[in-house]
Amino acid sequence: MNELELKKLWQTTNEKLEESFVINSKNTEDITRITVHNFLGSMKPIKIFTLLVGIIWVGLGAIILSHIYFYAFSEANKFFLFSATIQILLTAIALWIYLYQLITIYQVDITDPILKTQKKLAGLKISTLWVTRILFLQLPVWTTFWWHETMLTDWNLLQWAMTVIATVLFTYVAIWLFFNIKYENRNKKWFKLIFNGKEWTPLMKSIELLEQVEEYKTDKNAST
């Protein structure tokens, strides 16, 4: 075999390798898109259920609170009223985030470029962290909604101490979680305990799959 034939053989082999790489890359991307689409699809039921229950909760709460504010404010238990108002407001904010997430999930198309899908997944990741932070801010009001004015005159020091300690503890936990729930802490035990289920695990698997595809393409390009 002469030099010219060797060059032609090398060129043919190289073209076949490049063609094989393109086919393998396309197959890998297609499979990844399907898998990611299935992962995101598994998140829809829990988000729809949460959204519906949340709308009912906020709707009924808003009706009751509006009635109290307009017609029975002077007779109402102010501790209950203000605690319930904060809880309803925070839940309403969380519902808007859930609605954004559900819309984003439905907007993810199986034919979208990987980069576009990655941006949507990043938005879902950030919003999931934020909605969890916001919901945990409700913790203190669950310890104050049952307070009443007779506490000021009828309670002894021990009752006050237990009540204040509980409220301070819940407030501290809520603030600590608000500032520490972030992606950098995802490998910590307490984080995994909170974020373990249909609203987080499929999202993380989807992100990891797309990252692996990008790494695969990068490595193949570098080797060629």
Results as ranks from 00 to 15, higher is better:
residue 67 H to E: 01
residue 70 F to Y: 03
residue 72 A to M: 04
residue 72 A to N: 11
residue 72 A to L: 02
residue 73 F to T: 02
residue 73 F to W: 04
residue 76 A to F: 02
residue 76 A to I: 01
residue 77 N to K: 00
residue 79 F to T: 01
residue 80 F to T: 07
residue 81 L to D: 00
residue 83 S to T: 04
residue 85 T to M: 00
residue 86 I to F: 03
residue 87 Q to I: 15
residue 88 I to L: 12
residue 91 T to F: 10
residue 93 I to F: 14
residue 93 I to E: 10
residue 93 I to A: 15
residue 94 A to M: 06
residue 95 L to I: 14
residue 97 I to R: 05
residue 98 Y to F: 15
residue 99 L to V: 03
residue 100 Y to D: 11
residue 101 Q to G: 03
residue 102 L to H: 03
residue 103 I to L: 07
residue 104 T to V: 09
residue 104 T to D: 02
residue 106 Y to E: 00
residue 106 Y to F: 13
residue 109 D to N: 06
residue 110 I to E: 05
residue 110 I to S: 01
residue 111 T to K: 14
residue 112 D to V: 06
residue 114 I to T: 06
residue 114 I to N: 11
residue 115 L to G: 03
residue 115 L to T: 13
residue 116 K to I: 14
residue 118 Q to I: 04
residue 119 K to V: 03
residue 122 A to R: 15
residue 122 A to N: 12
residue 122 A to D: 13
residue 122 A to L: 13
residue 123 G to R: 03
residue 125 K to W: 12
residue 125 K to L: 15
residue 126 I to C: 02
residue 129 L to W: 07
residue 129 L to C: 08
residue 132 T to V: 05
residue 134 I to S: 08
residue 134 I to Q: 02
residue 140 P to F: 11
residue 141 V to G: 13
residue 141 V to Q: 14
residue 142 W to Q: 15
residue 142 W to P: 04
residue 144 T to V: 02
residue 144 T to Y: 06
residue 144 T to P: 00
residue 145 F to L: 12
residue 146 W to M: 11
residue 148 H to M: 09
residue 149 E to W: 10
residue 149 E to S: 15
residue 153 T to Q: 08
residue 154 D to G: 05
residue 167 T to S: 01
residue 168 V to I: 14
residue 169 L to V: 06
residue 171 T to R: 10
residue 172 Y to V: 10
residue 174 A to K: 13
residue 175 I to E: 09
residue 175 I to N: 09
residue 176 W to I: 02
residue 177 L to F: 14
residue 179 F to P: 09
